[in-house]
Simulated scan of single mutants.
Amino acid sequence: MTDEMLRAPAEVTYADELNWLESIDDGPRPFSWRLSPKMVRLFILGSEPADGLDREVSQKWFGDRSFVERSVVTLASDRGLLLIGDPGTGKSWLAELLAAAICRDSTLVVQGTAGTTEDHIKYSWNVSMVIAKGQSRESLIPSPIMTAMERGAIGRFEELTRSTSDVQDALISILSEKYVSIPELDEDNTVFAQPGFSLIATANSRDKGVNDLSSALKRRFNFVRVPVVTNKRSESEIVRFRTSELMHRHQIELDVPPSLLDILVQSFTDLRAAAASATSDDEKLESALSTAEQIGVLEDAILHSHFFGDRTLRAETLAQSMVSSLARRTPEDLAILNKFWHGVIEPRSKRDGGAWPEFLDGGKQAIETLS
């Protein structure tokens, strides 16, 4: 079934694992949860030998277990969960995994934008049915959030601070009263949330000031701040895990040398250090230099090597992908990358050798081509 989807949701990708966990789960489950809180944590963070399981459960999200535990506890309460952090820290992926483990449906999602309206989080109408038969429950189109309420499931709201204050205010009554009124109907005009309903929202910490949350809405969420991954080993594991999924999806068999993965992670680490020491925004790349962007750089290099190369990932291709991905502003970002390549990559190439010289040359060529 996953072969029929460009990207299968977590509950489909890991259906076999979720079924097995549910079959052996004898822990207490809140409401109508499919797994107990301990099994939700195990599904997300993976199993350890001390768990004594008959099969290994893969780790799917790489981060501090306290973040997962606090998230699970919040969803077992009557408060919403707000995952906040920099771009590319895995907030949406964690939200998807939580929803998949708890209710086996992570697709009840509203995407927050400047164009998101109350209809997107409450309901709208099938105009042709309204014209033919009038307004009724049959002609009502529930939003993903309303559907989650009716099923006692987990609803998701991506990029909450991107939506306007009117939309945010509409969430207050949903989170506090746990029902939605439908004043257009005379009967059957209230949808009550069933036990198990909760909301996971995500917010980009770099969007502060776009549409700040009101104090009333903040009180209805528990905040979990997801930090940027700074541990190189953890970051390498994340990049390797997500890249393996990509290659499996595209049916690509291509070796990713550990040395090239180390170069990628080290280069991003050095770029972050340079950004931290910069005295002005003009000296910083527009990129957030997140783990997600590392995955994008490696993905681009793998696909280029597969379709246009000799199906061997090389340091030169990786460097060209990195420069092309990070040079978003011209000429500002190119000037920053050029300074970085000569001031950091070149000395490291002379000192460490290996694939670094080829990485150095590939980056210089890409900068020259784009200049």
Results as ranks from 00 to 15, higher is better:
residue 59 Q to C: 11
residue 55 R to L: 13
residue 41 R to W: 07
residue 201 A to P: 10
residue 246 L to D: 10
residue 164 T to K: 07
residue 51 D to C: 14
residue 302 I to V: 09
residue 35 L to I: 08
residue 300 D to G: 06
residue 158 E to N: 09
residue 110 V to P: 14
residue 277 S to R: 14
residue 46 G to I: 13
residue 340 F to D: 02
residue 117 T to A: 01
residue 139 S to W: 02
residue 102 I to K: 09
residue 128 S to I: 06
residue 168 Q to A: 06
residue 74 T to H: 07
residue 214 S to A: 10
residue 213 L to A: 09
residue 277 S to E: 14
residue 79 R to F: 15
residue 65 R to P: 14
residue 25 D to Y: 04
residue 117 T to L: 07
residue 351 R to N: 11
residue 208 K to V: 08
residue 49 P to I: 01
residue 134 G to W: 01
residue 29 R to G: 09
residue 172 I to Q: 12
residue 127 V to A: 09
residue 53 L to K: 08
residue 68 V to A: 11
residue 177 E to V: 13
residue 33 W to I: 06
residue 196 G to P: 02
residue 337 L to R: 01
residue 274 A to T: 12
residue 316 E to K: 12
residue 8 A to N: 04
residue 35 L to H: 11
residue 174 I to Q: 09
residue 254 L to E: 08
residue 40 V to D: 03
residue 329 R to P: 00
residue 354 G to M: 11
residue 321 S to C: 09
residue 181 S to K: 02
residue 315 A to Y: 05
residue 72 V to H: 02
residue 359 F to L: 10
residue 234 S to L: 13
residue 166 D to F: 12
residue 369 T to I: 00
residue 107 T to P: 08
residue 219 R to T: 10
residue 368 E to C: 07
residue 163 S to T: 14
residue 128 S to G: 04
residue 4 E to R: 15
residue 173 S to Q: 10
residue 116 T to A: 12
residue 160 L to G: 08
residue 10 A to V: 11
residue 323 V to S: 01
residue 143 S to F: 05
residue 95 A to K: 13
residue 313 L to N: 03
residue 37 P to E: 04
residue 305 S to Y: 14
residue 1 M to H: 14
residue 107 T to D: 06
residue 364 K to E: 00
residue 192 F to E: 02
residue 230 T to H: 10
residue 357 P to H: 01
residue 177 E to R: 11
residue 232 K to L: 15
residue 166 D to A: 03
residue 253 E to L: 10
residue 142 P to G: 06
residue 239 V to A: 03
residue 48 E to Q: 13
residue 180 V to S: 06
residue 3 D to P: 02
residue 172 I to N: 13
